[in-house]
Design a protein around this nucleic acid. Structure first.
Lengths: 195, 195
DNA sequence: GTCTATATGCTGATAGAC
DNA sequence: GTCTATCAGCATATAGAC
């Protein structure tokens, strides 16, 4: 299998994504230059444009890929069971996924401002799909009398904000195991919504 | 009272702060240039350096001022009453203050990355002082048997994240009044912590 | 206190050699 | 697919006139 001239790697594309993700999470999109990303990968800046049309597209692809992975993973959760069981599964999933991918989560909240209008709309649509999953669970549980909610939509925002907040303080080398963590948050959510 | 030569305003300093706040909240610190801030104020870029040593200091002063105002306002809350009453007062205060100053809150979370190490440490210390206020209420209520908390520290993080999340979706021209909003969040918090 | 002018360096992106 | 070289523009910050 002949390589093309000058190719030193079969996987430069993913390495560009990984470098961009790490650097943008650390310094912010506007503060990171294409040259910095190239240096992290070990190529010259011009070579990056074999893998992205421009810097904006690079950011958009990072966010879109993250949201699609998140939605795919969400899709593997069982859709049967009581609303309470489904809510617990969602909460544990959300925490586990977010702890596992802090950089992706971080830039998906922090860099929305730096998306073009079209790209922003696309990411927001994916985010709404994710939130609507929780919203549906809450409304089902409300209708079945398992939950006592004054406003399901607000509860969705509140629960997601609370759970996502773990990324601002949780450290894997700290005193709490991931199971402890999920148990603590689940207890808070359960008590907040239970009838 | 003689003005100095070329002075066109007694309040350029505050106007610089306000312009920087608005632009940074909208576009991000690294994406906003001193020229943009100057244009918003109506002066040339060089004139900004009469009011700040450099761009970094401008950001730091915005965040420090916000945190100090927040702590001062927090200090006006009554420190007497049951832990439940103090918790309710804190929650309503936090939501009201954050809704009232969305730009300041936004940059205080988003631009921490762009602070120098020393400046970051200073802002983090102020933030910890704020969080410790809620932590103290939770621990008092726990000790008095009014709250049932598995972990007061985690509950502090969870409650603050949940309440701060209002800024990501709440709009004053939407269907919910500020009172409705505070009532909804307070209900969630109360049920999550009550014994 | 604000202006103009400038020093110095970095930016995103492209062209063409290999 | 990666390199080098380059374009045209904008960045922060400062100096000195007024």
């Amino acid at each position: 299998m002949a390589r093309k001239t000058g190719s030193h790697s079969e996987i430069t594309g993913p390495r560009v994504q990984a470098a961009a993700l790490r650097l943008i999470a650390q310094h912010g999109f506007a503060a990171v230059s294409m040259r910095q990303i190239a240096a992290e990968v070990g190529v010259q800046a011009g070579a990056l444009y074999n893998y992205t049309n421009d810097k904006q597209t690079l950011l958009f692809d990072l966010l879109r890929t993250h949201m699609e992975h998140l939605l795919n993973a969400l899709g593997t959760l069982p859709e049967t069971g009581t609303p309470m069981a489904r809510l617990e599964a969602f909460c544990r999933f959300h925490i586990a996924y977010h702890i596992e991918r802090p950089d992706e989560v971080f830039i998906s909240y922090m860099e929305l401002r730096n998306l073009s209008a079209d790209n922003f709309a696309a990411i927001e649509a994916l985010r709404r799909r994710y939130e609507s999953h929780l919203d549906a669970i809450l409304k089902d549980g409300q209708a079945a009398g398992h939950f006592a909610l004054d406003d399901a939509r607000v509860t969705t925002f509140a629960v997601i904000a609370m759970l996502t907040g773990v990324n601002t303080w949780y450290r894997e080398d700290g005193p709490l195991s991931k199971t402890d963590l999920a148990d603590l948050y689940w207890t808070l959510v359960r008590r907040a919504v239970a009838a």
